[in-house]
Nucleic acid binder design. Structure first.
Lengths: 138, 138
DNA sequence: CCTTAAAACAGGAATCATTCCGATTCACTC
DNA sequence: GAGTGAATCGGAATGATTCCTGTTTTAAGG
């Protein structure tokens, strides 16, 4: 997702244009990996050294709810990444060494829901973990 | 998995037979759901009110490493359940209301790994969330 | 521009799950 | 029944996340 798309969504939902949001979004753009609140904070060091975690988490949560960021738990920590292809359902391979991700277009749900009659499916999680080609070499 | 099987595995690996381990394992047997360390502690109230979280987590981690328990992160918290069918790979539907689980024999990995050449797959997670038939009615 | 109300923020305290640590107790072996 | 390393206890420490309160900033209207 581009920064323009992100801002369009934010303004459609009456969120204000602030410096912090701008910097956070820039941090995520063009990164194909999941990142933590701490990594955001470190990145902000130049721009706004005094930013509080409250602000970071509040915005990350907002972005996630609006579909601007994708969110997942890795080792009990919240991780976020730019929504790569809005509207197109997909999953990720996640490199356990460098954190880089790779999109997986297949979704296992289609062939499985048939076997869950009377169940009300709300969501699912499918992630593959391992080493990406670059990290395999090392 | 039965308690006998669990104890066989523990003794094969030189773990001692303690009262705490016995009570914890009994707590998990015959429960088809994921449980937290706190729930374990509450259950121990009768048997050993003074048990420390250190002991609980240490044993849960041990059981998990030995394949006696299955482990997953739900909302950033560690959850454990008795290994239902040792050796048989499977996944779970997890009820977000009552926590009950349902085994899903299908594994999405088989048809997908072909599309990850040069990647080194270490593991994967596939879980379906929603309401079980009983909780749908309410 | 200037004013104003609501939104956003900073800073620090609080919370919650989990882990660490030093001292004590226990389970198994001889 | 004594010795030894494993297991445990209790409480402090940690680390991520959230809460709280007062202050600043944004966007809109006059």
């Amino acid at each position: 997702m581009t920064l323009d798309e992100a801002w369009r969504i934010l303004q459609e939902n009456q969120f204000k244009r602030t410096k912090n949001r701008d910097t956070i979004l820039k941090f995520f753009s063009n990164k194909d990996r999941y990142l933590t609140a701490l990594e955001v904070k470190n990145f902000m060091a130049d721009d706004n050294p005094g930013i509080s975690f409250d602000t970071i988490y509040r915005n990350l949560s907002t972005f996630s709810e609006l579909g601007i960021l994708e969110e997942t738990d890795l080792n009990g920590e919240r991780h976020f990444r730019m929504q790569c292809d809005p509207g197109v359902h997909h999953h990720h391979f996640i490199c356990t060494a460098c954190g880089k991700t790779r999109s997986i277009p297949h979704c296992p749900m289609e062939m499985i829901t048939v076997n869950l009659p009377d169940y009300e499916v709300e969501g699912h999680k499918f992630e593959i973990y391992g080493k990406c080609p670059l990290c395999v070499q090392k």
